[in-house]
Simulated assay, not measured.
Amino acid sequence: MITPPLPPDALARFPGLEKFGRTATRLHPRPGPVTAAESHVGGPLRWPADEPWPTCDAPHMVHEEVPLPAELVARMRAAERGRTQPHVLAEGEVELHREIATLVGPGLVGWGSRDGGPVVGHRYVPRPHPTPNPMVALAQLRARDVPDLPRPGGADLLQVLWCPFEHSEGPWGPTVQLRWRREPDLTDLLAEPPRGEVGNDGYVPEPCRLHPEQVVEYPYPEELPEDLRRLVDEKDEECGYDDESYVDTFMAPGWKVGGYADWSLTDLRPTPCPRCAGPTTLTLVVDTSERGTGRWQPTRADGEPDDDDPHEPTGVVVGRHGALRIFVCLSCPDVPFLLDQQ
């Protein structure tokens, strides 16, 4: 897969931006058979036979419905009819909402009815796994295939696993484990990993081959010096309907290793190492979608359009069709990491 080059005048519009360029490796996952000897998403791992397979014992979140008394629903409907504007609460509604929250209890996420049925409150509550749940293999990345993959302690292989349930520890979603390895050390391998329970099918990836491609991208605007940030704001305000914004032009979408993080959803957040509080490095972006703007639509090596370009090739759905970013600390010997979801 080949990403089209930047428009000829793109960098010229932002004098000084070129010095902030940083490489990233777009992974371009595409469905297909994979083996443990390859870099991939959703395939078998080169796992040592004498090493226990990771499990998750963190409580996972379970959806529950709590019936609401008919008389409380009637009072709520009556209060809603007293609104002078559709989205402005009437007198007494705040108190009714508090009453519902008390009745439903911790973990309230809303209330409503389905197909004309009774009104119920919705909540998520933590529940322990009956037994430690075996994790799912998410990705295996080899340094020889992925040029921007860090190599802490001389490692040349990264394996990423997660528990396919919702959890409230860290960002809402799966718990994650990383394994950094040296491929020459892997000889006697596990034949078949254990299989656990699945709470969210969107956390079970389809096996995908990777087509790594190194590109250059540039920082999210809030990470730029003040003068460049102001210029980006000005240019974005001038964008017409068919024009691409700064982020659309300079930041790669989809699964990638390295590069810069896009903070469009939350604005810039700190990403300190959870162990030493020092800086971390964006190592992997696990994205729901590969589909960016025209700037990032890949072509095949022969220059023809990628007719098989799928929107969500891995079947992974993160949050509300967003992305999970893994930031690692390369200073601490045990390579701690931080998760962020956008």
Rank of each mutant, 00 (worst) to 15 (best):
T23H: 15
V34W: 04
P31Y: 05
P5K: 02
L6Q: 01
P7C: 05
W53S: 00
L68H: 00
P15Y: 01
H28Y: 09
F20V: 02
T35L: 07
E65W: 01
W47D: 07
L27G: 01
F14K: 07
H63C: 09
L17I: 02
R22I: 08
P69W: 01
V73Y: 05
G32S: 05
D50Q: 07
P54L: 03
A12V: 06
R46I: 10
G43S: 15
L72T: 00
C56H: 11
A49W: 06
E71Y: 06
D50C: 00
A74K: 11
T23E: 12
H40C: 14
D50S: 02
P69L: 01
T25W: 00
G42D: 14
P54G: 14
T55W: 02
A70L: 05
H28K: 00
A70Y: 00
E51K: 01
P48M: 06
A70P: 02
L27M: 08
E64D: 12
L11F: 04
E51S: 03
L11I: 10
E71A: 12
A24E: 05
G42M: 07
L11W: 04
T25C: 09
V73R: 09
D50H: 04
L27K: 04
P67L: 05
E64Y: 14
T25M: 05
E18Q: 08
V41A: 11
P31W: 09
H63V: 06
P29V: 01
D9G: 15
T23L: 06
G42A: 15
V73H: 08
P54H: 14
D57K: 11
E65P: 04
A74R: 14
R75T: 07
R26P: 00
A12I: 02
E38Q: 08
A12T: 13
A12E: 12
E71G: 07
W47M: 14
A10K: 06
V66M: 07
V34Q: 03
W47F: 08
A58V: 11
P8Q: 10
M76V: 10
V34M: 05
M76H: 11
G43Y: 06
P54M: 00
P48G: 15
L6I: 03
W47K: 10
L68M: 03
S39F: 02
L6T: 05
E65G: 00
A74L: 05
A37G: 10
P69A: 00
V34C: 13
H63W: 13
D9A: 12
D9H: 11
A74H: 15
T35G: 13
V34N: 03
A10Q: 03
D57W: 12
P15F: 09
G21T: 04
H60Q: 14
P31S: 15
P67V: 07
P5H: 03
P31T: 08
W47E: 04
R22C: 12
P7E: 02
E64N: 11
F14D: 14
L72R: 00
M61L: 15
R26G: 01
V73T: 12
G21E: 02
G42L: 12
G21V: 05
P52G: 01
R75A: 10
L72S: 00
F20Q: 06
E65M: 02
L17G: 01
W47S: 15
G42N: 11
A12N: 08
R46N: 15
P33W: 04
L17H: 04
R26H: 08
P7L: 11
P7K: 06
P8T: 09
A24N: 02
